[in-house]
């Protein structure tokens, strides 16, 4: 990982928190808003935020196809909205997605902000504090998907090859283990 740079898609959302989390996990991290900036990084984080807003900007700024191509070669870690962008299918409502991780995702599946929550979960990385905010639920995962943590029997932290997906927000805690695990994929 030495000498490598991790980008954070900075169109909208909590990208600053990811930059800080990546740095505390030992990475060199930069903001990515253009295709040229994307081409200069070795891995990418898709942050939490509004997936509809990000999708619209990805298309308008001609970043959608480059992002799909990037994911064919290099690792991507998506949290919450980022998980929605990486999925193969998205519901409530249906929307387009990159299809890089074989999961079916339902948006805002726990309900509204009043149903947001913080829980402690056992995971393959040890016990994790998981912050869910208007979070999606992974309703189905394909055979290539490895589940690293579940909550209420639904997968919440999964990986498929070089890609990592969390429906919660490890970047909102002081614990860098999930980001550190992503960095092992570089």
């Amino acid at each position: 990982m030495a000498g490598k740079t991790v980008g954070v898609l900075a169109l909208q959302g909590d990208y600053e928190r990811h930059l800080r989390a990546l740095e505390s996990a030992g990475a060199h991290a930069v903001e990515v808003r253009t295709a040229a900036e994307l081409a200069a990084v070795d891995a990418l984080v898709l942050p939490g935020g509004e997936s509809t807003t990000m999708l619209k900007l990805l298309h308008r700024e001609s970043l959608y196809a480059p992002l799909g191509a990037f994911g064919q070669q290099k690792p991507i870690f998506g949290t919450c909205a980022g998980a929605i962008l990486l999925a193969t299918t998205v519901t409530s409502p249906e929307q387009e997605s990159l299809g890089l991780v074989d999961i079916a995702v339902q948006r805002n599946a726990y309900g509204r902000q009043l149903d947001s929550r913080v829980v402690t979960l056992p995971s393959a990385l040890g016990d994790l504090e998981a912050v869910f905010i208007r979070a999606p639920i992974i309703r189905a995962a394909g055979p290539a998907v490895n589940v690293l943590a579940t909550y209420n029997n639904d997968p919440v932290l999964v990986e498929q090859g070089r890609h990592l997906v969390a429906t919660f927000h490890p970047e909102l805690t002081a614990d860098p283990r999930v980001h550190a695990y992503f960095l092992t994929k570089l």
Partner: peptide, 18 residues
């Protein structure tokens, strides 16, 4: 406290947006 973190958390998700 914890509830406050959830409240601030949603505001974090709105950053950089309109």
């Amino acid at each position: 406290n914890e509830e406050y973190r959830l409240k601030v958390g949603l505001a974090e998700m709105l950053k950089g947006g309109v």
